[in-house]
Design a protein around this nucleic acid. Structure first.
Lengths: 154, 154
DNA sequence: CCAATATACATGCATATGCATTTATAAATT
DNA sequence: AATTTATAAATGCATATGCATGTATATTGG
């Protein structure tokens, strides 16, 4: 069924790409304006904060955040260099490591959230009703599930 | 009204980011697997093909494609180097130039479309009904309009 | 007409991403 | 136990992106 998309498919596709781009740029710009790290750092820090003191293995972060392995490896380098995470060798698995958030990491994440959240509301949350958000989330959820099951990637 | 987003806002936000990421990766991977240029090239080539023989000014492309100026400048470098576009000085505006698509550019765009289209259908089009696509497009359209009017960027 | 400012585009430098490969260890197979 | 295969993570190299600034021309306002 390798057909070419119909009109409505293309319209929805383009809007999805464009809206995401606009919304993400807005939030990134807000963070930058506040002299805070980029959004990816927030995602990592949040995962780690939720994971508790033991932290997570990089490959777990990789799956959760949909990041490529080499990409995450270097992202962790940067965040570590900034002092927001801590890496140590894994006790049992000699190949691996444990990544945990530091106190400074928690602090910066807490400083990021109001900026992130406000920007999210401003560009997104405030423009849709609760009902619309539910509909949107449901439509996208369908896509995400299909994509995750159909596709080999992740 | 700098409030923190509510639960539904966050759910919808995350899904929007995640779905776009999954869908886009799928299409990019399909193009790469077919030894074709990335999606951005397609967008540029399509705009130029639609624009006709005279082509477009870079700043017009910039607005249409939501690309940063310096970013577009280098993108055009690469596409030009590949022989898919042609740049020449603008006749009246000494600062500017005209960018037009070459025959090879048209050819490659035509080769890209079936791959792009098939991937789009596979990961997106085929998983939503026409009605759902209309709903989705409409919801996103609202966001795009708000973002474009609210925000200074573009 | 000329100085000040704005617009169009390019570029040096830092950072980020992708790809392929490498290193190290673990698990599985014989 | 030795060999193969799989998994965890890092890295050299190419490409892409962002930021600030540079260069050239155009426009505006005195």
């Amino acid at each position: 069924m390798k057909k070419t998309p119909n009109e409505m498919t293309m319209r929805a596709w383009v809007r999805l790409m464009k809206s995401q781009h606009l919304l993400l740029s807005h939030v990134e710009a807000a963070l930058k304006a506040a002299n805070l790290p980029p959004l990816t750092w927030y995602d990592v820090l949040l995962e780690l904060e939720r994971a508790g003191d033991d932290g997570l293995r990089p490959f777990e972060l990789e799956r959760d955040l949909l990041l490529a392995q080499y990409n995450l490896s270097r992202l962790l380098d940067r965040i570590e260099k900034a002092g927001f995470i801590h890496r140590k060798a894994h006790k049992e698995d000699g190949r691996g490591q444990m990544v945990s958030i530091t106190r400074a990491g928690k602090t910066v994440r807490h400083k990021m959230w109001p900026v992130y959240g406000a920007a999210m509301n401003e560009i997104f949350g405030d423009h849709l009703s609760e009902m619309q958000k539910i509909e949107l989330a449901s439509l996208l959820d369908c896509l995400i599930n299909c994509a995750s099951t159909d596709q080999p990637e992740n």
